[in-house]
């Protein structure tokens, strides 16, 4: 029983990897460098249709079109940046998994830092207040002593 299950699982894996290999092989690259750029690009470009997948993983027709276009542009000698810009111009910043630094996204970068700074500030403020409360003036100490004495009697 377990063995047959294992065999089935293995067969499925082989089929999946064969399918993806076939996909890759339908593109002919000029050199290994180009293939590497292509693979990197399809991993960092996001499919607008199935939003949490990159275009390498997605089977949506749109992802296929975007892969084809990336491949064509690489073959035409376009650089990685040019292709990303081409996609962003049509599909917006959304399409790239590395969003640019803008006023809208700056909060994501500075927000956590700001919260840490506020936290440290509050912590310092609270400890200082405690210290101040503990320290008594000489007069207060005398009064405290007196109170203690009167309490003993």
């Amino acid at each position: 029983m377990i063995r047959s299950l294992l065999v089935t699982v293995a067969a499925v894996f082989v089929l999946i990897s064969a399918a993806s290999a076939e996909n890759e092989n339908s593109y002919k690259f000029d050199n290994e460098q180009q293939r590497a750029t292509y693979q990197q690009l399809t991993k960092e470009l996001r499919c607008p249709k199935c939003q949490n997948q990159n275009i390498a993983d997605s089977n949506a027709p749109l992802a296929e079109d975007m892969r084809d276009r990336s491949y064509q542009m690489l073959k035409e000698g376009k650089s990685r940046e040019e292709i990303i810009q081409f996609m962003v111009a049509r599909y917006g910043d959304f399409v790239h998994y590395q969003p640019p630094f803008t006023t809208a996204t700056s909060i994501l970068w500075w927000g956590p830092l700001l919260i840490v700074v506020i936290g440290i500030g509050v912590a310092i403020g609270l400890t200082r207040k405690k210290k101040a409360a503990v320290e008594l003036t000489p007069q207060e100490r005398e009064r405290l002593q007196q109170l203690r004495k009167s309490g003993d009697e």
Binding site: P48, K49, P61, L62, R69, R90, Y91
Partner: peptide
């Protein structure tokens, strides 16, 4: 082929 749509950023 969806070429014009691609220029418009059509995603569906």
């Amino acid at each position: 082929q969806g070429e014009v749509a691609f220029e418009f950023g059509v995603y569906g």
